[in-house]
Design a protein around this nucleic acid. Sequence first.
DNA 1: TTTAGCACTCGAAATGAGAGAGTGCTAACA
DNA 2: TGTTAGCACTCTCTCATTTCGAGTGCTAAA
Lengths: 344, 344
Amino acid sequence: MQLEERKKKVLEAIILDYIATAEPVGSRTITKKYDLGVSPATIRNEMADLEDMGLIEQPHTSAGRIPSQIGYRYYVDYLMEKQLVTEEIKKYIRSNLKDQIKVKEDLVRGAVRLLSQISNYTAMLILSAFSQNVLTHIQLLPVAEKKLVLILVLDNGHVEHQIIDLPEPLSDDEIGELTDMLRQAVCGLTVEQWRKTPLQSIRRQWDGQIHLLKEILEVIEDTLTVEYERKLYLSGTLNILNQPEFRDVDKVKQVLSLLEEQRIMEDLMLKMGSSERQPISIKIGTENDYENLAACSLVTATYQISGRVIGRVGLLGPTRMDYSRTAGLLDYMSQFLSEGLKDK
Amino acid sequence: MQLEERKKKVLEAIILDYIATAEPVGSRTITKKYDLGVSPATIRNEMADLEDMGLIEQPHTSAGRIPSQIGYRYYVDYLMEKQLVTEEIKKYIRSNLKDQIKVKEDLVRGAVRLLSQISNYTAMLILSAFSQNVLTHIQLLPVAEKKLVLILVLDNGHVEHQIIDLPEPLSDDEIGELTDMLRQAVCGLTVEQWRKTPLQSIRRQWDGQIHLLKEILEVIEDTLTVEYERKLYLSGTLNILNQPEFRDVDKVKQVLSLLEEQRIMEDLMLKMGSSERQPISIKIGTENDYENLAACSLVTATYQISGRVIGRVGLLGPTRMDYSRTAGLLDYMSQFLSEGLKDK
DNA sequence: TTTAGCACTCGAAATGAGAGAGTGCTAACA
DNA sequence: TGTTAGCACTCTCTCATTTCGAGTGCTAAA
């Protein structure tokens, strides 16, 4: 969509003002606050045109204009520039995360918390599924007479444990043997691979020779398949309550009930496709496939280790959110995370 | 406080009706719905008395009465009987939890979820601190060149792991030696004990002899002291949005922002003292020390294994909550949990 | 002690009058 | 031809007023 220069200016003025005030913007406001060098009447003409094009709309006849979803989209695609993070905020982030940089999980948690705090939106972060990660270590550890702990370690440093309750005790030899078999069967495989070809081979080969084999393998298989999904972190879910467009409990409920559902949030984040060159991705209103989010927008950025995308951070706010500032903030945070996780 | 029989009946009628409708109750309503055999005028006289005693109050002159906090307290202490759970609900609970009974964590999670679902209030569960539990197993496991996993197992079956990043590799021998030392130092101690006398002895005895000892011990000490706090589970935090007294976003925010704070919720649950004979405990409105909960009540029940309290489940609702039904439900669930966790 | 009757109170909902913000259109102007 | 001033018009928001009804407290009689 090609727009004359002045129309762009008017559209931008409307969007910026609406983002700042949450009130419909009238022609007089624009002439007063944004110096376009023309009278309100002229602005009105431009606004009528913009409305015809679907970029802005009127809540009712005698109100000012508000941006439409298409208007935001145009703004985001053609007008907006990422607002760089101030030195002050960079410092704030660094000083708040410097203690947590040691542990991957803490760093991630802290980053999400900070994002929600700085932006006053809802922050989220998803770690990519581990399906391409390789299992480097597997071990069974007896910890009580009838209790084992299964420990799994991935090449990205992620560790998982699972308790196995035995119906009867196993000898140390049996446990050792079992561990060896498991190592041979799955170490070096990616998560995806071991899911496809589970432990049938072990089962066939050793059935009857090892006590309780069947029961134990079942638990292990469950662990291998169920665990290692993506991990999602959320923070600031209640920030939405501060937005004037969510003064209504029913609207709040719509959004918060979605946020509670891990599954949906994962889906949401995964659908935010983006190329490597352009890590920032923005979905406005109904572009997010979920009806309940029609009044919300989601801005996300990927972060990576040596070129490979390993996660995505995002901020969810009202469609009226400050896209420019948000994009800048996420941009910085994604760099920070890429950097901080490099040698983890 | 001694009350004549009829006053009790009137108070109970007001409370039951208000719990059901959330509307102030008038004298006519009582004569119509609750058969006390007297006219509205008589009820009005009784109500005036009850109001003088502080058990009920009037939102404004021409409205009916609503129970005061003192009124609820009187009801809970002297009038209410626990409403036993229906066979139907018992069946529902059993069938929903039977698959999860294998794993302690799943059982607990499932129980909380079910409670919130059945009651439409916010459910919570806290596991007692592990301070009296004994450490039965501790082990260091090399999983990569410069990475160890520390595994801790308590006598209640709880397992915890923590990743240790080493600045330089350690040999298997060194790791084995270290594990042995740790075992000698802390196995058999309760969590409380090992916190008080940390690893000074090891440090003094072995410093210099083992590579990197100081760094590793630091991480281990951190883990030992920081982890093993109480665990809190929450479910149905948004149920409050369904309550008519929380149609207002600001009120919702007050409560939800508290629920977000793990610390406060733990404190809340821990302050619900109760004797063994009477596991159910009820705090109404401002009895819960937190201003933000002035419009809420909390009902909890302890559950135990062989007489020892190991956790507490609770439901948080508006002060207008159905105490009788809630108490019954929690009673059943606490029994169910005590039973289900017996041999874990 | 209980009840019928009645005046009274108060909040909630309905109604209506302005005020104000903002528009669209028209005609004049550069 | 694009811009602007002027003006009538529209619509919401606010505030005051009215009405309605639920529910009370009091009084006097049963």
